[in-house]
Amino acid sequence: MFLETLCKINHMFFDKTGTLTQGDFSLLKCITYGSYSEAECINLAAQLEQYSEHPIAQAFHQQQQAHLNLSAVKNMPSQGLQAQYQGHVVKLGNALFCQVETPLKSGEQVIYLTQGSQLLAAFELGDKLRESATEISDYCHNEKIETTLLTGDISLKSEEVAELLHINHVIKGVTPQGKLHHLQQAQKKDKVLMVGDGINDAPVLAAAHISVALATGTDIAKNSADVILLGEDLQKIITLRQLAQKTRTIIKQNLAWALGYNLLIMPLAILGYVPPYIAVIGMSFSSLIVVSNSLRLLK
Rank of each mutant, 00 (worst) to 15 (best):
L240D: 06
I210V: 13
A215S: 11
K172W: 03
G196D: 04
Q242G: 02
G231Y: 09
H166R: 15
G272K: 10
S158C: 08
Y277W: 15
K252E: 08
Y261S: 09
A162L: 12
L259N: 05
G198Y: 00
H209K: 11
N168L: 11
E163V: 10
A208Q: 02
D197P: 04
V212S: 03
I167L: 15
S287Y: 06
F285V: 14
E159I: 03
V192Y: 07
H169N: 15
Y273A: 14
Y261F: 12
A215G: 03
A208W: 02
I251E: 01
Q253K: 08
K246F: 01
L229C: 08
A269T: 15
G152N: 00
Y261E: 07
L234F: 05
L240N: 05
I199T: 03
G173C: 12
I167Q: 03
Y277F: 15
I171Y: 05
G272S: 11
V204T: 10
D190L: 13
H181E: 03
A215I: 10
G282C: 10
S287W: 00
K157I: 05
S294F: 08
L205F: 04
I251S: 02
A207E: 07
I281Q: 10
K157A: 09
T148Y: 05
N254T: 06
R241T: 10
A208V: 01
T247F: 06
R241E: 07
H166P: 13
K246G: 03
D226I: 09
D219E: 15
V174R: 04
H169W: 10
A225Q: 11
T239G: 08
V227Q: 13
I228M: 11
L271I: 13
Q242M: 12
K157L: 06
Q184S: 12
E146C: 13
I237Y: 01
A269R: 07
S211W: 00
F285D: 04
I237A: 03
I250W: 03
G178D: 03
I278K: 12
H181W: 02
P275Y: 09
I238K: 12
